[in-house]
Amino acid sequence: MVSGVSSPKKIDCEQDAAIVVEGLERIYPGGLRAVDGVDLAVASGEIYGFLGPNGAGKSTTVRILTTLLRPTGGRASVAGYDVVEQASQVRRSIGVALQEAALDPLMTGRELLQLQGALHGLRRAESKLRAEELLVRVDLVPASDRLLNTYSGGMRRRLDLAMALVHRPSVLFLDEPTTGLDPVSRTSLWTELRSLNDEGTTIFLTTQYLEEAEQLADRVGIIDHGKIVAEGTPQELGRLVGEPGLYVKLIDQTQSDRARELLTVHGAVSDRAAGGLTIRTGLGARAIAPIVRTLDEAQIEVDAVEVEEPTLDDVFLAVTGHRAEEAAEDDPA
């Protein structure tokens, strides 16, 4: 495993930790080992990104940490409370926004927020006031009295987040909060999460997107087949892949074969399905000038050269030896 050594909010001792997980296991009836000895610690005030493909064990881990599922081995504590022995105290300390924004489509945004307030012990008047504050915060006042089945995906996600915040939790769990959202809604949610973190909320975020983890997370753990296979800052994980590759697009695609031949002196060249070439030189952006020069000397006109940042799939391939999609196909957990 790759350990993060330069975490911006590194945990000095267990007292600082909002989440501590030791040897966590979950074996489903039938023998499927969804979580297989996970160890991790998240500091108070940290944003921890939990990455992995579908079926890797992310959601099962979150369900255990949010007391929705019991572990079959190991232990975990959240906000200082054991998730099995002190489940009720854990629930008082956490906010949860699970995958797919599980909201009742036959209720209005305001009704749902007030119900959430009641579930967390707020009196009716307090609950109404808090609902109003949160509707303003997530910019849903105009839609607050409409049924949920008229909300867009982004609006549902914002309401889901607001519901998780009703009781001002110290730790927030978000299970793939931006999956399926358009870029504008995604950016808006990221801004809100950063703002919450600035106010001191610890955030445990699962995602399939490395970009999301890079944008938000102080540290990232990658899970595959129920085990953490890498952990560190997004920069550290990105470096596992090595320097970024370069994508070269030619004006005349019929010159691709000749270009490939010429560019092999700079590094490994591969064709892109959508057209153009990818070159891995080990030099990153520093290879742009020599590559363009080589093509220019051969009178091959270049349309564009782009630096290709490593993706989750690249990191995944580097640390596991297989691609994320293959893992998802292998494991239905």
Partner: peptide
């Protein structure tokens, strides 16, 4: 319907 739609998990994750 609440169980299939996931709303039931929201109830379970509340301190009730």
């Amino acid at each position: 319907g609440d169980i299939e739609g996931g709303f039931f998990d929201r109830l379970l994750s509340a301190p009730v």
